[in-house]
Design a protein around this nucleic acid. Structure first.
Lengths: 251, 251
DNA sequence: CGGAGATTTGAAGCCGCTCAATACAGGTGG
DNA sequence: CCACCTGTATTGAGCGGCTTCAAATCTCCG
């Protein structure tokens, strides 16, 4: 597997081959986590950090009365809990959507890595800035877009982020979220998500069966979503054009 | 003026007196910016970075059709554009609410500071993590709370953040936002903000005249908002209890 | 085949929006 | 000092987007 974390970090910051090797080494140990598993809870003080290699997770919080809000999705190449490395604790929970492959690193070992290399340090700092940028876009999505637009935007984001780490499948993108999950991500009820998805489907803007989605008409979907990918900090690379992501080729 | 940036950084990370002095030195040069002034636009590539010392600003984005979303407020002690130091560009715009005092630092000089001290580096990284945490709370606020709750939460956040840097005035907190501004922050129309404010006022939960707000009954407001201050990473300090901010003393 | 969870559909209702008019406050010029 | 002007706050009425509740269908899996 070409390493999704390295793919991403190298887009944020050039790394020497030594640095790359050090990261590969630290990430040597990996394991598989089943679907729908909690991997962290609010308030946890983890001693290890987790990098997602394959699959999908989400960050979320639950309010006193049970309302849930999904804060963001974690795609391959993302740290699940980098914040806990720097701050020591988690302020939100994390679960897997489907089965996931992860690499696990001791905090100590990551600390050494961080202190040993300016480039790695900067790459990771940039990664947390990128995460903040994603949050900001979600704020504007939730605050100022209609249900229809919000859903369009969510699918655009996931598609581009999965593309950026080479996670496009031939049939589209793996995305094992229920409509309830999607609702909790975009601040809507599951019922309304259902209706809006139908609308997107009949406009032939997305296909989605609960496991996999595809974007038959990227241009139009992005237009509706008001989506522009710069906030994802994805440099145009080899086979992945940014302005017109390859999802367009899925038709 | 006891320095709000240092107050904040020292809560994030202990600093030696040398480090403190170095920061003070870098921040030597300051100036005043009038009310309602743009200080950065989306896409800017600033060469200097700005630290707010007094006053209030907000980050925002504008969509193609003119809809605006305020992404967060900037209070004294916050960097306006730390992200641009690390990434080189701004992905959102910034404006002042009232007149502001700021310190300005050349990127080069800040870079030197960052590279010279592990503690400063960590403090700043933690600062960007804190910002991400604030964004996450806004996501859950916008996604899963009613208009009434959202407003309550906004006032709680501002109050605690201003308290943390010693910006409480005798009469409450300076907050020169119009109801339109507030609406753009919490994803509501100005009209509805007006109605909800009236409701908060008659419940005696806040007082607000467009310039200054106060929180007569902190306990109850926080309860309604579902507010808990941990996400703001504010250590209990001398005269500022966290669980029950001094706003309660304002009555 | 049965059961659990997810999707889909319908109906009714409320929250928050839009539009529009009015009241109010601060600042300016005569 | 008042008349005016501009921007903000306030109020009312009507509407529509989204929610809630509930039932029906579908799908997957044991």
């Amino acid at each position: 597997m070409s390493h999704p974390l390295l793919m991403k970090l190298k887009q944020a910051m050039p790394l020497s081959s030594d640095e790359e090797a050090a990261i590969r080494l630290a990430l040597g140990h990996w394991k598989v986590i089943p679907s729908r598993q909690h991997i962290a809870c609010e308030g946890d003080r983890p001693k290890k950090t987790t990098v997602l290699l394959d699959g999908l997770m989400y960050r979320y919080v639950t309010m006193a009365d049970g309302r849930r809000q999904i804060l963001s999705f974690i795609v391959p190449g993302d740290f699940c809990d980098l914040s806990a490395v720097v701050e020591g604790w988690m302020d939100h929970a994390i679960s897997t959507l489907g089965a996931c492959t992860v690499a696990v690193i001791e905090h100590d070992s990551l600390d050494r890595l961080i202190n040993s290399s300016h480039a790695i340090r900067t790459a990771l700092w940039r990664d947390t800035l990128r995460e903040a940028a994603i949050h900001r876009v979600w704020v504007s999505n939730l605050g100022r877009r209609s249900a229809y637009e919000r859903l369009a935007h969510l699918f655009c984001e996931i598609a581009v982020r999965l593309d950026a780490v080479g996670m496009k499948r031939t049939c589209g993108y793996d995305f094992m979220a229920t409509q309830t999950d999607i609702g909790d991500a975009v601040g809507l009820s599951a019922v309304h998500v259902n209706r809006m998805l139908q609308q997107l489907r009949c406009q032939n803007l997305i296909t989605y069966n609960g496991n996999t989605f595809a974007i038959p008409d990227w241009e139009r979907l992005a237009e509706i979503a008001g989506f522009s990918a710069e906030y994802l900090r994805i440099e145009p690379c080899d086979d992945v054009p940014v302005s017109i992501p390859p999802s367009a080729q899925l038709v």
